[in-house]
């Protein structure tokens, strides 16, 4: 079974530390400096959403250049091979893949950012199209998704930095334990009802 990271919404306080941690470690190793999980606010609560590393991953199936492969009980995306076709993002049922590009210097329209190093802020298109298909002059995008920080022996950085310990890695043991616990509860409930 593939491993994945998920948050306990009871503990998530929507503080975005996971996103900042994610960007920081990926930038350091030369991968796209973009958060691979997104804090998502809903009417009933908030939690980050990210890749479930599906065992039968639709993103891997639709990728025309085999940039998405199964490695070490996870789904890995090779940012160098990716051609930015966005099919994986459309196929993903969780919205866990985001097309993201680095803006070359000078392509910024200058709406925002005034400090000596202007932050990369994509300009707003005049006629918005579907966000997955939006593009900007001078910007080449690749698909970005959670890679479980495979380059970090300590495991995912979001899990380490989450101040409320809402994030955790789900693996076989975890799922097995959860299934056994629920079986016990279900059986006990059934027996008690007679």
């Amino acid at each position: 079974m593939n491993r994945f990271v998920i948050a306990n919404p009871e503990k998530c306080i929507g503080c975005y530390t996971c996103e900042a941690g994610c960007v920081t470690v990926h930038e350091k190793v030369g991968l796209a400096a973009f958060p691979r999980l997104q804090v998502t606010h809903t009417a009933v609560g908030t939690m980050p959403s990210q890749c479930r590393n599906c065992d039968d991953a639709p993103c891997a199936k639709v990728c025309p250049v085999n940039a998405i492969t199964f490695e070490d009980r996870s789904v890995q995306l090779n940012e160098s091979v990716c051609i930015g076709c966005k099919m994986c993002a459309l196929a993903c049922p969780f919205g866990a893949i985001t097309p993201y590009g680095t803006m070359p210097k000078g392509a910024d329209d200058g709406t925002y950012g005034t400090y000596p190093e202007p932050p990369p802020t994509p300009p707003v298109p005049d006629d918005p199209v579907h966000p997955l298909l939006a593009w900007t002059i001078g910007q080449r995008s690749v698909a970005v998704k959670c890679d479980l920080c495979h380059f970090r022996p300590e495991g995912p950085e979001c899990v380490r930095v989450c101040p409320t310990k809402a994030l955790f890695v789900v693996d076989d043991d975890h799922v097995d334990a959860s299934i056994v616990r629920k079986r016990m509860a279900s059986a006990a409930g059934y027996i008690a009802k007679g």
Binding site: Y16, A20, V23, P35, Y112, G113, Y115, P119, P120, T121
Partner: peptide
């Protein structure tokens, strides 16, 4: 908001915070 502090003089100069919340 959580990712910036007051008038932004400090946090807006930390690129990762500015990236998450540029506007």
């Amino acid at each position: 908001r959580v990712y910036h502090y007051h008038t932004g003089t400090m946090t807006r100069r930390s690129p990762v915070l500015e990236q998450i919340a540029p506007e």
